[in-house]
Nucleic acid binder design. Structure first.
Length: 196
DNA sequence: TGCGAGATTACG
DNA sequence: GTAATCTCGCAA
């Protein structure tokens, strides 16, 4: 069943780990969320919404329960779930999924993955490609599924072991342990090598 | 008006 | 290790 808007209209750091094991679906292609990161808008130097509203980050300033999609490094799409109350821009970056339905279609979209299922959705850019999520999906309502994208709870239990750590690929705000993943899952993103 | 860095991925 | 290549903040 869909998650109620109240689920998203809370502190983003509380929402983030609770998204683990929820299911993200786009037009029948779906995956279970196994890795996320929280970004807390104006209180978080690493957030796209840290400074001000722009054409790119506008969706995060809107109501919770929407999808914020942006173009990363000029070539990959990444998607976030908008949280907190409207106007208080915050979001949870979906970093990795465990493929569920529509694996053949994922393979067609991700030729680079070859025969390795772990290369299908083990990264924020990869999973958007596998599900066919693009800028056209920015602002989609994932509660009502108005554009074919839904985030649902299928009653699979909260992971027995959730790991917590610092976020990937950022320099500002490294002090916050706002990355959460399902301990031991095979589909976690590789992450970036950090400078020593 | 230009430059550098960035919530990345893939290939050498 | 590094290329590919869009967005945005900040310096000039």
């Amino acid at each position: 069943m869909p998650l109620p808007i109240e689920f998203f209209a809370r502190d983003v750091v509380e929402v983030a780990p609770e998204l683990l094991n929820k299911v993200l679906t786009r037009n029948g292609v779906s995956g279970r969320i196994v890795e996320v990161e929280a970004y807390d808008g104006p209180a978080d130097p690493a957030s796209h919404a840290y400074r001000s509203q722009t054409a790119r980050n506008g969706t995060m300033f809107g109501p919770p329960g929407r999808l914020y999609v942006y173009l990363s490094y000029g070539m990959h799409f990444c998607c976030n779930v908008v949280c907190r109350e409207e106007g208080r821009a915050a979001g949870v970056l979906i970093r990795a999924l465990q493929p569920l339905d529509g694996v053949p279609e994922m393979r067609r979209r991700r030729i680079k993955a070859g025969s390795d299922d772990r290369q299908l959705t083990s990264g924020p850019g990869k999973l958007c490609q596998a599900l066919g999520i693009t800028l056209a999906d920015d602002g989609a309502d994932i509660i009502s599924g108005d554009r074919g994208i839904t985030l649902v709870d299928d009653d699979v239990a909260y992971p027995a072991r959730v790991a917590v750590g610092t976020r990937v690929g950022i320099t500002a705000g490294q002090d916050h342990p706002w990355r959460f993943w399902v301990e031991g899952n095979r589909h976690i993103s590789r992450g970036h090598a950090r400078p020593t």
